[in-house]
Design a protein around this nucleic acid. Sequence first.
DNA 1: ACAAATGATACCAATAAGGTATCATTATGG
DNA 2: CCATAATGATACCTTATTGGTATCATTTGT
Lengths: 138, 138
Amino acid sequence: MKLITRNTDYAMRALCYIARQRERSVPVPEMVAALKIPRPFLRKIVQTLGREGVLRSSKGQGGGFLLALKPEDVRLADLVRIFQGTIQLNECIFKKKICPNRGTCALKREIDGIERDALARLHKVTIASLIRNGKHHD
Amino acid sequence: MKLITRNTDYAMRALCYIARQRERSVPVPEMVAALKIPRPFLRKIVQTLGREGVLRSSKGQGGGFLLALKPEDVRLADLVRIFQGTIQLNECIFKKKICPNRGTCALKREIDGIERDALARLHKVTIASLIRNGKHHD
DNA sequence: ACAAATGATACCAATAAGGTATCATTATGG
DNA sequence: CCATAATGATACCTTATTGGTATCATTTGT
Ligand code: FES
Ligand code: FES
């Protein structure tokens, strides 16, 4: 199983790169060259980040992307939510009906606890902490 | 994202059911009726558990499955490994070559830590703990 | 006007998840 | 010793998710 997908990973790389450029507006072609991510795929990713309010974009010559938030406010947990949806148990459906045992289910309780912990830790990882604690991806 | 898949969930249900039957050999049709899991799918799952040494099987009339281990030694972490493979980061491949930055990658360090924690918790959840701590699935 | 950028969106391919089906083998009871 | 009830092995199918591409429209600086 995979805890984070490629979307999320690439987004993290791109955001780290953008953060290191300070207030410069960074165009996609530059990121493609620096990060070796396929251009159309990276474009889709940063567009999504724009819609989600993580990046601000400007069009036209000299345009590009820059952080909409402070690096310490961009959290891995948010990226996971954006690209992978909220973490959830198998959600225990039986023929489209929601499970009637949710209240007493011991397994659900355990899994929920593990998920909460994981999310809390993902929440602590920020762009700022990554670019501080050694290099990420070149 | 999903932390455990349906395979794993169903396996857990079946194992809990079998554990509650003590030393009785439990045939698949009985589990199908009790757990409402599609027969061929459940069959595949318990066969896998047999190969993996979690269940012992006997053929012929009166045959079926029973636990090969003590309920407190059947761990959710093992089922996750069996049905979902080992947990891993995006594993950072670039054109089939293993990533050269693994040593210094801050993101990898963080994710690895989160995975280790999650695995440790999955390791603590056993069939015994589930059937003790309230009902799971009917 | 033109070039360089993003916005929106539709599409496609590969992989994984979820599920079915079939035939062979083994054991038990009558 | 045969019918029956079970598992073993394995191949197959369907759907969802992931990963990735392509196209056209719009905006903006020179
Ligand atoms: S593991 Fe390859 S750059 Fe992080
Ligand atoms: S949540 Fe439905 S039985 Fe566990």
